[in-house]
Structures are given as C-alpha cells and as structure tokens.
Design a protein around this nucleic acid. Sequence first.
DNA 1: CTTTGTGCAAATTCTTTGCACCAAA
DNA 2: TTTGGTGCAAAGAATTTGCACAAAG
Lengths: 137, 137
Amino acid sequence: MDVNVKDYLISRGIRPSVQRLAVMTYILENRIHPTVDDIFSALNPNIPTLSKTTIYNTLDLLVERGAIIVLDIDAKFKRYDGDTSLHAHFMCDSCHSVSDLEIKDTIFIQSNIPVGFTVRDVQLLYKGSCHRCSTEN
Amino acid sequence: MDVNVKDYLISRGIRPSVQRLAVMTYILENRIHPTVDDIFSALNPNIPTLSKTTIYNTLDLLVERGAIIVLDIDAKFKRYDGDTSLHAHFMCDSCHSVSDLEIKDTIFIQSNIPVGFTVRDVQLLYKGSCHRCSTEN
DNA sequence: CTTTGTGCAAATTCTTTGCACCAAA
DNA sequence: TTTGGTGCAAAGAATTTGCACAAAG
C-alpha cells in the first residue's frame, strides 16, 4: 500500500516525505473526509514531532497538485477527500459525519454556466440527519 | 419596499427592529451573497451604532426562520442569500464574487440518499473563473 | 552547498460569548 | 415591569505567517 501511495505522490511531483506519506495514506485509508484535527490526532501518536503547520502545508500541496480535494460542506472546518472523482456529499447536522453519495447516472450536474465562465470544481452538497441520528430521538 | 420587508419579517415571527429591517433589506436589494463584513460596511454609515454582534444575531435568526439561507461556497466567510429557492451558485477563484446559476429544468438535483437519511438542504456549487477574470489575463 | 521541508511560536481573522444597558410590549 | 434586542469588549478557535533549524539532492 505504502508503495502505491509513494508512487501516487511522486507521479504528481510531490516528494514523499514521511509526513506527506502519512497524511496521504491516512486520507486514503480513512474515508471519513477528515479535518486537520482528525489527521493530527490520528498521526501524532506515531509521529510525535508532527506539527499542524506541516499538515496544513501538506494538505495545501496535495490540493494544489490534485491529489485530494477540499470540501466546502462544513463552515467550521475544512474537510479533505482522497476520492477526486465526481460524487456528492451528505453532512449530518447532529454528528457532523460526512458520507459519500453516488450521483445517479441519469443525473447530470450541470447548470446554465454563462459564456466566458470556466468551471474548475463542482460540488453537490446535502445536509440533514443521517440514519443513526434520525432514529435516535 | 420597506413595508414588504417589514411584513416579510413579521410573517416569520421576527420583530422588525431597525437593525433587522436594514439587514434584511440590504440582502434583498443587493443580491451579491454578502458576507457579514459586506453588510456591516454597507449599513454602518447609515446606522453608526450598528454592531457586528447584532448582524450576527440577526443573520442567525433570519436563517433559523427560513428568511434567508447560508451558503457554504466560501471556506473563509459565511455568505447569505435572500433567494431561498433552489438554484446553484458559482464562485470565482480570483475576485470571489458569487453569482446565481439557474438549474436547468431537465436536471434533477438528486443523489442516492440512503434510507433513513433526512435531507434539509441541498447546495450545488461551482467554482472557477468568472467572465471578467477569465478575460483579463 | 543549495534548495526544500518541518515545526515552533506568534499573529490573524472570523465568529461567539458574557454582560450591561436600552427599548418595546 | 418584564421580556426581548443591541452592542461593547473579551474570548475562542481555525488557519496563516515568520523564521530558524533540519534534511535531502
């Protein structure tokens, strides 16, 4: 696995430092759309010297090189996703978990983009209550 | 106009104070999806005592009562929209302006929402470069 | 040896909270 | 006179920046 992640980074012109590998691997293996804090809390025990600055730096780089995407679904925290393919997201108002949603293939994510506008990113966001939180009241 | 805004607030159980009327009127008459700062800068000259706390309070209340919606399109600032109907948004990476996009009526904003999930809000966000910024390089 | 990466500490910035005063019902 | 609204000042919290040291090519 690590070899793949390493190559994945290299293929995007990112030098695979210990920290960068750890961050990228974590995001790929924990598909929870983690926040910076999630990543820090998970990796800090193994890499005690790891700083949030480095996580921020790494995430910025990974986003810039298209290795991951940022989600705007949470106003409070930036969330990161290692799945760069087009899919929708659902965030629960109660537990703040973010789930992936498949976009029905009969549905086309397209609006009337005015002439002259260039689209770089599309996000389809749903908010509400997840199954767990819907049934526990 | 002011009378309509007043009634609009009252109909939602919101007491139409001078500050609330000003905020709501501003949002309705300036469809730029303003930030708190936009609102503050615009209203402060006329209501010098107006505080940001009151703007925050008012916006929270307006959102809670469904008079306006919050946009998650901008990671840095909350943006507010007086148009509560279903439509998409485009944010320019360069000038950070937000425009409304019509959702083509052949397009259905629907994903495979799992059973047990309750949807409260849907947002379709586009990011990229607007016409003005695309042509000025 | 030169460029790039890391991480501590401090600074920034948006938003929230505590609290006292003011206004309306 | 009691409830609700406003706004100042301070606190909170996520992110960014400056800078010095470490590591890699």
